[in-house]
Amino acid sequence: MNTLTIFKRELTSYFTQPTAYAIVIIFGFLSILLAFTIGNFWAIDDASLHGSFFRSIPLLLMILVPAVSMRQWSDEHYTGTIELLGTFPINLRSAIWGKFLASAMVWALALALTFPIVSAVNYLGDPDNWTIFSGYLGSFLVCLTFLAITTLVSAFTRDQVVALIVSVAICCLLTICGWEPVINEVRRTGPDAAQAVDIMTKFGIYSHFFEATLGKISITSLLYFFGLIIICLLGTNLVLKSQRA
């Protein structure tokens, strides 16, 4: 019940301020732009969107996702409203989940509004829409993971800019270390690099995300995403509690 109350407040707050609109519009525009430029939408002739549209999604998300939730807890510290939440008869957990789910809703909307590209491939060809759906699910899991990371970082500081910079840095690291050009570069250093490549692929978000865009989400990938999300949200609870001790 309290989670729902906080969820509603946060979601309204995203839409009474320009944050959500800016993010949804910028993400929609850039994701489609990248699909037609870097993604070679026309030349690649692939209706599953795997190589064109989804290819650059994590690169956009690693920068844009933290912008949505950077103020989640840092603003509570800065304005002192955390003192109100802390003295209401509610669990801290419900506040953390309410806020997290509201930011997830903003990203669900941002992803949903890229539907013109799905309509386009359906008009131009005969794609497997389940594979496309799986790609969207993968993108949403990446969003949730980055949101959870930002939630944790924002619990540490009262400064939104610091929260943004640190979260973007962590999300970039997770994305880039599994990114194909980087993996190829490491592979070129010699046969000894095989183990490093293996670790980077497993640790990075790209391999798990790519599986989803190909229409298969493995248990390992689900464990990877949900593991990171749960660890970050439990960590947020711990950080917020220890700050008062």
Partner: peptide
């Protein structure tokens, strides 16, 4: 308990009524 913290913290993006409704909901 009813509590007024030192700096009277509020969610500035809400209306007075909206804020009070929100607090009342959290009070059950």
């Amino acid at each position: 308990i009813g509590y007024l913290p030192e700096s009277a913290p509020l969610y500035k993006d809400m209306t007075v009524q909206g804020f009070l409704k929100f607090c009342a909901s959290l009070r059950g």
